[in-house]
Nucleic acid binder design. Structure first.
Lengths: 210, 210
DNA sequence: ATCATAAAATGACTGCCGGTCATTTCATGA
DNA sequence: TCATGAAATGACCGGCAGTCATTTTATGAT
């Protein structure tokens, strides 16, 4: 009885097609300017159909951000091969994250979008929250790395690993966010964006690593 | 001939009254949910009048954020009295900023709102950009402090003061943003929000200050 | 007082958009 | 060929940012 399975696959495929279309429209126009009618046209579906697969425009945007998360996670996984200490791993992850923000700028902006939203106002499903903050999410990989570094002595102890993890993540996100959003200011001030990243790394190095 | 002057004052007062009304509505409902009709009703004016004083809803929101900036600036100014070294000043400013984010939560959220927006898409006037990033803005006070600390030897040199300033600002903002937006996650993980700030300070201390 | 003029204020109106739902189309198995 | 439920449709709704022709008000001149 393969028909239910085929239906299931087709449903999932349609879902992905809608996300594909939404990506094109959202990435081209920005989330605010883009309309669901445009997404529907790009997907060659009626608007009503979109709402059979996603409960809101924001929910559809979240699906895009989840793709970004997947890419980031995979990149991080690959970035740590060949590193030895936790500190080395940490540096690799950081550089990987920075690279991601440049190479996959659009996905990164989607992540930033949700980072700037109050979680409570987002009313996500349990699954969605779990997916984003537990298990094998980038932030959890980071925490494991920090714990590893504390064990092998390459990372300063004395602070709870969990707190340190979220702080580190937040700091880095803050720097990357500013770089994305305030380009014009830096051009005006004659500040090289690379030097912001350099400063960031320098601060972390001497602050985190013994 | 005092009439033009009086008119000017009344115009400015009306402007402030509109901002007052907008604050009430925006702070109560959040910027997205609040409508210009509600602001008009709160101000006891017609909606059309609002648009004689502000060119868009966002522009009105910006005016609120500017009030926040003023408060922050004044707080910072007061926080550094009695400090000696640049490093001490820096710590005072940081704690002041954190205090501001708690005491004036609504204003702080307005600042965050614009921090999360792309500057290019904001089409602000030259005056508005100048006001926010030049002169005696918080960020410039920070930069002067860092330069002072580099001179008196209390802050590590080797990085351009301007880059360091913006990096520091961005990191701190990132941490405060996450604390505001992801409360539920931290409750879930059993992470105290204070400990994030502690981690942040600890990282900066050992990374910035000799 | 009266009137002309310009500034200030009004609110009905427009266009757009997220989201809904009664109706239609389609695939499947009997 | 037909009955059934799933999938898709698109006309429609309510709400909102922003506009503009019209009205109201303040002022200075006559």
């Amino acid at each position: 009885m393969g028909i239910p399975e085929r239906k299931e696959r087709e449903k999932e495929r349609r879902r992905q097609e809608i996300i594909d279309a939404a990506e094109k429209v959202f990435f081209r126009q920005g989330f605010d300017r883009a309309s669901m009618d445009q997404v529907a046209e790009e997907a060659e579906l009626s608007k009503g159909t979109l709402y059979l697969y996603f409960k809101s425009k924001e929910d559809l945007h979240w699906a895009i951000a989840e793709r970004g998360m997947q890419i980031l996670k995979e990149s991080i996984r690959q970035s740590v091969v060949g590193t030895k200490t936790g500190a080395e791993k940490l540096m690799a992850i950081g550089l990987c994250f920075i690279g991601f923000s440049e190479k996959y700028r659009d996905y990164f902006l989607s992540l930033l979008f949700f980072e700037g939203k109050n979680l409570k106002k987002l009313n996500l499903s349990r699954d969605q929250i779990y997916e984003a903050f537990h298990g094998d999410s980038p932030i959890m990989i980071l925490q494991q790395t920090i714990e590893e570094g504390m064990s092998d002595g390459s990372i300063r102890t004395g602070l709870p690993a969990a707190s340190l993890t979220h702080t580190l993540w937040a700091q880095t996100l803050g720097v990357l966010q500013v770089i994305q959003n305030k380009k014009e200011v830096f051009d005006l001030f004659g500040i090289d964006r690379k030097s912001l990243i350099l400063s960031h790394i320098e601060i972390l190095k001497n602050g985190l690593i013994q």
